[in-house]
Computed example of a mutant assay.
Amino acid sequence: MSRDGSVRRPARRLTAGGGETLEEIVAEEVAVALVYNGISHAVMMATPCDLEDFARGFSLTERIVERPSEIYDIEVEPVGRGIEVRLEIAAQRMAGLQERRRSLAGRTGCGLCGVDSLDAALRAVPAVSDPRPVARPSIERAMAGLPDHQKINRTNGATHAAGWASADGMLVCVREDVGRHNALDKLAGALARSGGAGPGGFVVVTSRCSYEMVQKAAMIGASAIAAVSAPTSLAIETAEQAGVALVAFVRDGRLTVYAHADRITT
């Protein structure tokens, strides 16, 4: 497994002028098992970079733990063709996890695979405690700056990015993954490890905006989530309830606000 999220694979390129054999750089995708106190809980297909951040962020945004201090240790161990990320968490949280009886079988682009009830899939999202106005120029600055931080995508062209921007639009942290949910979980974990997100900050993502993306942004405490592509109806409803401004189609000098438009200033 590589350390930069990309691997080389032989390919055959066909054009009008004929064909040629070449070596292509492609995104690496592996099975990552999240193991809590010795019990495997979720298997996700992910880019094998920043996996400690991924495990920490997943644990927080999925509310397996309530705070970073309830994660005592994280170890990343290659196992066969995949990777195990082994976490030691507080006994109280482990008891709660066992009660949930959830067995996730994740794959790229799917953040709810294996959830066994509608209540579990559509659980209430806590409202952001201190939502603040976000300026349109800040959103555009953050989105414009995102490509410079996408080192993996520049190499293989196949990964999403999630970034945390301060109120002025400066990107504080960016994480990448083949799965958009995974990228946002990695961002959540990185922010938690560094002491948390600052007030008035917001999330920018290089994908569409679904319910799960809003839910994870709310768990981080984002005032807004801005996406390069479209939102879903449930994402809009969830953003309204959570107090997260939802901005989409941020490109070509325009953007569209779908939730809490009054908080996006010019």
Score class of each variant (00 low, 15 high):
Thr159Glu: 03
His160Cys: 14
Ala165Ile: 04
Leu146Tyr: 01
Arg175Glu: 15
His149Asn: 09
Pro147Gln: 04
Val174Asp: 02
Ser138Ala: 15
Ala135Val: 11
Gly169Arg: 01
Asp168Val: 15
His149Tyr: 10
Gly169Pro: 04
Ala161Met: 02
Ala144Cys: 08
Gly163Tyr: 00
Leu146Phe: 06
Arg175Tyr: 11
Trp164Leu: 10
Gln150Asp: 09
Cys173Trp: 12
Asn153Phe: 01
Gln150Cys: 12
Met143Thr: 10
Ser166Phe: 07
Trp164Phe: 11
Asp168Met: 07
Ala144Thr: 14
Gly157Ala: 14
Gly157Val: 12
Val134Thr: 13
Trp164Tyr: 09
Met170Trp: 06
Arg154Ser: 12
Gly169Lys: 01
Ala142Asp: 11
Gly179Pro: 08
Ala167Gln: 07
Arg154Asp: 12
Gly163His: 01
Ile139Val: 14
Ile139His: 03
Met143Asp: 05
Asp148Trp: 13
Glu176Pro: 06
Arg141Leu: 11
Thr159Asp: 09
Pro147Arg: 08
Cys173Gly: 12
Ser166Trp: 11
Glu176Thr: 01
Val174Asn: 08
Pro137Glu: 04
Val178Trp: 13
Thr159Tyr: 04
Trp164Ala: 05
Thr155His: 03
Asn156Gly: 08
Gly157Pro: 03
His160Ile: 04
Ala161Phe: 04
Gly163Lys: 04
Val172Lys: 15
Asn153Ser: 13
Ala161Lys: 00
Arg141Phe: 12
Cys173Lys: 15
Ala158Trp: 04
Glu176Arg: 02
Arg154Met: 08
Asn156Pro: 08
Thr159Asn: 12
Lys151Trp: 07
Gly169Leu: 14
Ile139Gly: 07
Gly145Gln: 01
Pro147His: 09
Asp168Tyr: 13
Val134Ala: 10
Arg175Met: 14
Asn156Trp: 02
Val174Leu: 13
Val172Gln: 15
Arg154Thr: 09
Val178Gly: 12
Val174Ser: 06
Gly169Asn: 03
Asp148Val: 09
